[in-house]
Structure formats: structure tokens, C-alpha cells
Design a binder for these strands. Structure first.
Lengths: 253, 253
DNA sequence: CGGTCCCTTGACAGCCGTCAACTACCGTGG
DNA sequence: CCACGGTAGTTGACGGCTGTCAAGGGACCG
């Protein structure tokens, strides 16, 4: 149960055994199994614990009064929904499960203790939160400059790399529980247009969808289309998979 | 020189006199005067200091290989360009002045010292960085769901409130050094369309532009159009100006 | 005076949203 | 077993928002 958090934080920094102990203490909470399509936190809620995703998919979204809404971020296995950690007063967006999810709710006090007692844990949490905001900035770039097809490809690439780093893919395929409406609300296009875009990606043999699974058939083509460069995800080089065949990088001794 | 940083951090938390001393020590660096339209950090640069803006405008931008580029954020008087603080390896975007700017470069070590020695300063810096990422998420919402005119209005509202909190406006007008190309690169539309959108905002008497200054003629109308709610900026309630006449809030003792 | 940068305008095309209808799939209940 | 309803995906027609191209105008500067 605490293994996943340890592994996650190890991606960001080196830990001592005392840090591991602190993590174990913090992780004595009982994980919650939340069914798919359940709102776990609403805009305006006070939060006294930070959800840590053991498995499943969660999305953060913000709603306008006229009904329009936008997905702000996704959280998958190994992610902290650090909606401002225990710092800002209240949730400015909602959190909702997209698939059945196992969630560990880390109480603010437990986080505070880890952060206060260990500079290494503090650095790790800071970096984790920083990576989330770098991803948000990448979404700004995508939404602002890419067209619908490129944005869609970009989203799929990002999720693919993140899930791969979280060890949550099989071959080139992964669970993809989003409806087309949700994909649209993520890349800022209508549901109908999302349908056509996904269709074109399938037609061009870039991806394949079967039920709630998505397979990347042509990773290089997809990344080329999206002008995707995974470096912004700041994945641990050790868990980074070998590069695509078609895109060689410097030899690793 | 250090006054501005102290004032900024006071917006986020309470400080003790020892904290003030730490800030004064960190601020012994000599500020740099950088002319307008100068790139101060490039994508890929290592950063060993965090720019703190004493006056002027800076923008962060990311460039695609095909020439398209997107503004990721603006930094104005009193802002820290906390491009990941001293945590992530290198700049994933560029930093450029939009007007003549006075910049204090806080060395990583000075920041480290403040953060390590004072939990209050640490909290303040964390919150400051958090607010930046909340703004990025708001841009995701704006880019994803609002149309060009709404986005433009939203941007103007955000800048207006931030500059007002930084005490950098006169009446309802402020320095607005952006070219239309830069506005377009911020809200994700072409230069030509930006021109037409700004024109329509002027025609409807929402804003006025004279030289490099912008005046808000109808704050309520502009905020209504953009569905703008300043709460996401997490401005210090004490420095929040009185609410718009047309939008009454609960009586304040 | 010429050059450059920025703003402005018109014409036209294409991406994308909206509306509406239809299909496929799944679980439920009779 | 089938009828039924709900959700998600699909398709076509049409229109509007926005991009592109091209040209011209104004301000500033060397």
C-alpha cells in the first residue's frame, strides 16, 4: 500500500530509511474503493486530506455557470491529487472518478509531518507538484496552438507515457475509460467533433480502440503529429522505456 | 528593494522579524535593469537564480519547431518567475521582457536558505508558486471553453486584478505593453483575429486603448462577458479593492 | 526620406460547433 | 426470452467562428 508512494517519491529524489518510516506511518490510512463516475470532491469543498491514487482514473474539472466545463488534469496510478496541497483554502475545481479507483486519503497532518521532518520528502513532494503544473502549462500550449487532431494525439501521447511510467500498460495498450464527451472537454472541442477526430486517428492507423482500451499502433507517427516531446513530464530516466525505434537517441553506455 | 518581496510574501502568510531579516539578506543582490523585448532566459538554460520582478512586464513562452508559439504566463511587479524554483533541471520555456523591467535575481542558495530556515517563508513561497499554477489551470479553462472574445476579456480582467493588487494601476487604466501578436499568442488566436476582437471590445465601450495603456471602461460588462471571478487569483482580501458597484456582496462590518 | 514595426481592412476558405437523427450496446424487468 | 430504456458512439447537413493571404496606413527612427 505504501510501496507505491515510496516508488513515486523515489522518482523525484533519494530517500533515507527514516524517510521510508515516515511514509509508512502516513500510509496507515485505509484505502477507499470508489466506483467509476463518482464525484469525490466538489468545487468549494474544504479539503483536509490529499487523495493518492493507488489504481484507477480521476479527473479534475471546472464548470462554468452556463454549463460548459473543462477537464483540468488527470490523475492515474501513483499520482497525488495535490490540489494545492494543504495550502489554499478550498477546492476551486471538482474531482471525479472515471473508472473504479482505489484511493488513499493522506491527511494534511500526515503530509505536514513528512514535509516538516524530512527535507528529502519535502523536495520530493515539491517536485511532484511541480510536474503537475508543468503538465498544465503544456496543456496551455496544446490548447492554444495545436488543432483538434494534434491536441487529441498530444493527449494520448501524454497519457501513454505517464501510464507507462506508472507501469500501467500492456504492450502498447492501456485502459482508456474516457467517453468522447470527456475527451472533448479535455482538448476543448465538441463531442461530435471528437468523434470525427478519433475516427481519423483510427483510420490513419495511429491508434486502435476496443471497448475501454486504447492501443497505440504507430507511436512515432502519433508523436510526430502532436509534436510531442515527453521530456516535460520529467519522468525518472530509470523508469523511462527505451526510445522509439524510429527516433534514435544517444547511446546509453 | 526588499520591501516589495516582503509585501508580496505577507500576502500569503504572517512573518516574524527573523523572517524579515532573512529576506533582507537574500535581497542584497543588485537589481538589473533589462530593456523591453529582451530574452532573459531561453528554453534549455540552466537556472541558478529566480527572477523577482520589481517593475515591468515579463512573459514566459514556449516555441514549437514549426514556428508557432504560445505565451504560458505573465509576470508583473511583485511576481516571482518561479519556473520550478530551484528544483527542475532546466528551463522548459523562455522568459522575455515586454517592457523595460527592473529584475532582482534571487540566487538559488538564498532561496534555499529562506525556505530551510523559516517554515513561514517556505509556506509563503509555496503558496506563491501554487497561485501561479492555479492561474495556469484557469488559462486551460479559458483556452478550452471560451471563444476568442471571452478569452480576450478574461485575460484583460486577470491582468487588471493582478496589477491592481500590485498597486500598479491608475484609476481603471494600466500599462499594457503587449502587441496584438502577443495577445494572440496568449489566447490562442491569430494576429488578424486579435485585431478584430480588440476592436469589438473597444466598439462596445468595454475597454479603451491609447498608446501602450489600456483603460477598462466597463468592468462589470467585461467580467460578465468573460465569466470572470477573481477568487482564483487568491489575492489577499486586505488588498482586494471594493467590489464593483453593479455586483454587491455581503456587507463588510 | 526610406525602412521597420505595428495596426487595420477585405476577401475567402477551412476548421469546428450545432442540430437532429440514427445505431450499437448493455442491463433491467416483464 | 424479449421488450424496453438509457448511455455512448456515429453520421449528415449547415453555419459561424477563426485562419490565411494580401494590401495598405500610421508612427517612429536613423
Amino acid at each position: 500500500m505504501h510501496d507505491l508512494l515510496i516508488q513515486k517519491l523515489l522518482d523525484f529524489t533519494h530517500l533515507l530509511s527514516e524517510d521510508i518510516d515516515l511514509i509508512k506511518v502516513a500510509c496507515t490510512v485505509k484505502p477507499k474503493l470508489v466506483p467509476a463516475r463518482t464525484t469525490i470532491l466538489r468545487q468549494g469543498d474544504m479539503l483536509n486530506a490529499v487523495p493518492f491514487i493507488l489504481s484507477g482514473w480521476i479527473c479534475a474539472s471546472k464548470h462554468l455557470k452556463d454549463g460548459r466545463w473543462q477537464v483540468l488534469s488527470f490523475f492515474v496510478k501513483g499520482d497525488l491529487c495535490d490540489c494545492g496541497l494543504p495550502t489554499l483554502r478550498e477546492m476551486d475545481h471538482s474531482l471525479r472518478t472515471l473508472s473504479d479507483s482505489l484511493i488513499l486519503e493522506l491527511p494534511n497532518e500526515a503530509l505536514d509531518e513528512m514535509i516538516t521532518k524530512s527535507p528529502r520528502l519535502r523536495a520530493a513532494f515539491t517536485r511532484s507538484s511541480l510536474v503537475q503544473s508543468v503538465i498544465a502549462r503544456e496543456w496551455v500550449l496544446s490548447l492554444g496552438q495545436l488543432n483538434a487532431k494534434e491536441r487529441c494525439a498530444h493527449l494520448i501521447c501524454e497519457l501513454f507515457w505517464r501510464l507507462r511510467a506508472a507501469n500501467a500498460i500492456k504492450g502498447n495498450s492501456f485502459e482508456f475509460p474516457l467517453t468522447q464527451e470527456e475527451v472533448g472537454a479535455t482538448i476543448g472541442i465538441s463531442t461530435v467533433h471528437t468523434n470525427r477526430i478519433l475516427q481519423s486517428l483510427r483510420d490513419e492507423n495511429l491508434i486502435e480502440q476496443k471497448g475501454r482500451r486504447l492501443t497505440i499502433k504507430d507511436q512515432f507517427g502519433l508523436e510526430e503529429l502532436a509534436m510531442f516531446n515527453p521530456s516535460f513530464l520529467h519522468l525518472n530516466p530509470l523508469v523511462m522505456p527505451p526510445p522509439t525505434l524510429a527516433r534514435p537517441v544517444a547511446h546509453i553506455g
